[in-house]
Design a protein around this nucleic acid. Structure first.
Length: 375
DNA sequence: GATACGTGGCC
DNA sequence: TGGCCAAGTAT
């Protein structure tokens, strides 16, 4: 018997037949479940890596990263002993880079505090950086078949529709955890959790859900009330700011360019970039670039031609990078607003982890270098 | 509890 | 093009 909040905000009783729901879902999963790389192992390390990569990231994006990662770092020990730069280079392009930094730190913590063995208690697992309750439940159910519930985006949507919740999922998280826990099959928790996620990922889609193919069609309260299109409820999103950033590709007399490593925490932490900063009101781009380089690197430059403009959307703001070639004049480059600065050749850029927006700058640099050879 | 935190695909 | 969304966590 599950308790579901009704439209008036009161809690009313709902009694979907849990044993039949389990049987229907597991039967569907046996027939239609996805064959994914991390389902072919019970190694908690490999499963852990997949769970972290899959946070806010779709399966098709993760698969190539997953294989490359396990080849480079096949176990906890190899990951713990790698440098953060190696770790970030393998993560380059996946986004949410704190995930990679946390994996690295957690591997070292497992070596020092758990004798190198991945912990099997919920508390100990959630105590590792980057692992919340959903990821902990996912790992423990998949690797050790423990009856731990999960509540990711797929499960939230599936349960919101199954019980026709009239409120946005983020407002009823506690209830959703109860529902996930009540439904979880105690005999086959590993399969059940995977099945729940597959249902959300392949049938109970955000848009154009494939209801006729759903094993829960006859139980789904949203379907019975013709509310599938409206559930889960959403809250309007806030407008996001757009920043104009002046960026410098600074050349020295040895035909090297200057790059800097961002602070370890925060946006794109630990990644390298071409230096620059936000254009202030009534400031020209060249003036911005010259000022930012003086303030953050402590050197004098001459700002030259524009190389490229790069539009890029992050999750909570947008930027336009206006990138100019620059010529080094004088001063000793210092890491005044970053971790480190370094002169490198264009060919060496490939050895450093860069965010996507900077990859576009590098591509433009290489294209221009190729073009120059023909003149 | 709201916000910061990346990127790619879809329409 | 722009907005939405995807196997969430940390603060």
């Amino acid at each position: 018997m599950a308790t579901v909040q009704d439209s008036a905000g009161r809690y009313s009783s709902s009694s979907l037949p849990v044993p039949q729901l389990r049987q229907a879902l597991l039967g569907w999963y046996a027939e239609c479940g996805r064959d994914l790389p991390w389902r072919q192992t019970q190694d908690p390390y490999a499963i852990w890596i997949s769970e972290i990569m899959l946070q806010q990231t779709q399966v098709q994006t993760v698969i190539p990263y997953y294989h490359r990662w396990l080849e480079a770092f096949p176990n906890i020990s190899t990951l713990a002993q790698a440098s953060q730069q190696q770790v970030l280079k393998l993560w380059q392009g996946l986004g949410y880079y704190a995930r990679a930094r946390n994996l690295h730190t957690a591997a070292q913590k497992i070596l020092s505090e758990h004798d190198g063995q991945f912990p099997q208690g919920l508390e100990a697992v959630m105590d590792l950086p980057g692992i919340g309750r959903t990821t902990a439940g996912g790992i423990l159910s998949a690797a050790f078949n423990q009856p731990q519930p999960i509540l990711d985006g797929n499960v939230k949507r599936v349960l919101a529709r199954l019980y026709a919740l009239k409120q946005p999922p983020q407002k009823v998280v506690k209830l959703l955890w109860q529902l996930s826990s009540n439904l979880l099959d105690p005999v086959a928790p590993c399969e059940f959790n995977q099945a729940l996620m597959d249902l959300g990922a392949t049938i109970c889609l955000p848009k154009n859900p494939q209801c006729p193919a759903c094993p829960w069609l006859n139980y789904c309260q949203a379907h019975q009330q013709n509310l599938v299109k409206n559930i889960p409820m959403t809250t309007p999103s806030q407008p996001i700011p757009h920043k104009i950033i002046g960026v410098a590709v600074i050349w020295n007399s040895q035909n090297q360019v200057l790059i800097d490593r961002r602070p370890a925490d925060g946006l794109l932490g630990g990644l390298w970039e071409f230096p620059g900063g936000k254009v202030e009101p009534n400031e020209t781009i060249p003036a911005c670039i010259q000022r930012e380089i003086q303030e953050e690197i402590g050197i004098e430059i001459v700002v030259g031609d524009e190389l490229i403009r790069v539009d890029h959307a992050y999750s909570h703001f947008k930027v336009t990078l206006v990138v100019h070639h620059c010529q080094y004049l004088s001063g000793d480059p210092q890491p005044l607003a970053c971790e480190e600065v370094r002169w490198v050749t264009v060919a060496e850029l490939n050895d450093y982890p860069f965010p996507k927006a900077n990859e576009k700058i590098i591509t433009a640099l290489l294209a221009q270098a190729r073009g120059d050879e023909h003149h």
